[in-house]
Write a protein that binds this DNA or RNA. Structure first.
Lengths: 224, 224
DNA sequence: TGTACATCAGTGAACGCGCGTTCACTGATGTAC
DNA sequence: TGTACATCAGTGAACGCGCGTTCACTGATGTAC
């Protein structure tokens, strides 16, 4: 019987093969799209028979689910790392952009067209909240002034997505629009909708970011 | 020989069948996603053999291309119709949202994850410019004040996407961020990323729209 | 109005392909005494 | 250290499926005189 907390050679081997499968899966997604993901094709690229992969994944769905979870996890890691030196919205925003540009297919697996019939596992909503919490932390450290809107009040009544975070309604609002505005630029850029237009998407992105920070004023104003 | 400008019964029949094929194609996209679009499946639903469809479309790719073009066309129509009573950014924005909510799959066929290996035909860039021109017209009729940004200058140097439109750099900027901000909300909403969060996406959308209009001030300031 | 002909929608068989998944199996690797 | 056993990675055959696409064809519809 193996000691708990120790990894046997077999366990290490399994982990390694699973990782290799996922790596090839990403390659395949990059060249043919997520919907074309095929276990048989991955097996072929590994020089192994198709059924062999069933030792490592129960089926295609389990593999996809793990890819989605990994994608979320990597975004959360990127955001956490960016927040480590201290909460700074601009740093987070640029980390998010870098993460997206680093692998557009990974981005689209999360934020792209939903796969019909596929339902994300619960893990990912947990991870999504983590990311949101980091964003909220950063905004709480960023003073601002600006008019209160009906949306602020509405968000104060519907704040379960913020978990037990004590952010003010205005901060909830800002976290939300940071999220939507940056994704607005990113998703259009990555889908190629700017490619024929000639301007620099990076400049649009930073301008959007700066316009969000421009309202920053003196009053700390925020609980937390 | 048929008179030019007249449609023969056969032509009418062909047009009708092509329309039926597309209708079923949309149904299929709605239930299984664009990548699962299958000519054979459509034929089966029409009670017809698979090869029969090759009388109407040269192949799967041609059908998809036409669906994409139709999707763009329908957005352009929606925007044009909304602009008819007079240029009004808010009306355009709400028309765009209504169009998107009316058929999310149609929305994602244009703005969702790009299909690997598929390249949109030239028609659609023309239609996309039409839409952009309508947006620019509306902004030109909307006075505003606001600080000039480095992006404004950059856009003035890269304005081919605006065609021969005489909009000021600031107007180009506003058209662009209207586009990205609204799509930011729409794409996240339609992909279901708000569904667990509890707030009302429509209110977020209108708040974003209003914040864009809030800078509207006295000086007409705009050529055109 | 009637006949001869051309057009063309749709059929059914066929080709070759890849897919996910199951199953009984072989053979290598690790474990227990 | 050596032997007996259990575990488990990987194989190859098989199942049933649906796909896009081609081809030679039948039969109905429309056209020309």
């Amino acid at each position: 019987m193996a000691n708990p907390g120790t990894t046997t050679p077999r366990e290490r081997y399994r982990a390694q093969v699973r990782a290799e499968i996922k790596e090839l899966a990403w390659e395949q997604i990059a060249t043919a799209g997520a919907s074309a993901l095929s276990l048989n094709a991955i097996a072929k690229r590994m020089g192994v028979s198709g059924p062999a992969l069933y030792r490592y994944y129960a089926g295609r769905d389990e593999l996809i689910t793990e890819l989605v979870t990994d994608a979320y996890r990597s975004l959360a890691d990127a955001v956490h790392t960016a927040a480590e030196p201290g909460p700074d919205v601009a740093v987070l925003a640029h980390a998010m952009r870098a993460w997206a540009l680093d692998d557009p297919h990974r981005y689209f697996l999360i934020y792209g067209t939903p796969v019909p019939g596929y339902h994300a596992p619960d893990d990912v909503t947990t991870i999504a909240s983590e990311i949101m919490a980091t964003l909220l932390d950063a905004w709480c450290a960023t003073p601002f002034r600006g008019p209160a809107t009906p949306l602020d009040a509405h968000l104060d009544d519907h704040r379960q997505w913020a978990g037990d975070h004590l952010a003010s309604p205005a901060t909830l609002h800002r976290a939300l629009i940071l999220w939507t505005r940056l994704h607005g630029v990113l998703s259009l850029e990555l889908a190629g909708h700017f490619s024929g237009m000639g301007f620099d998407p990076a400049l649009l992105y930073t301008t959007e970011l700066e316009s969000l920070l421009a309202d920053a004023g003196d009053p700390p104003a925020d609980g937390r």
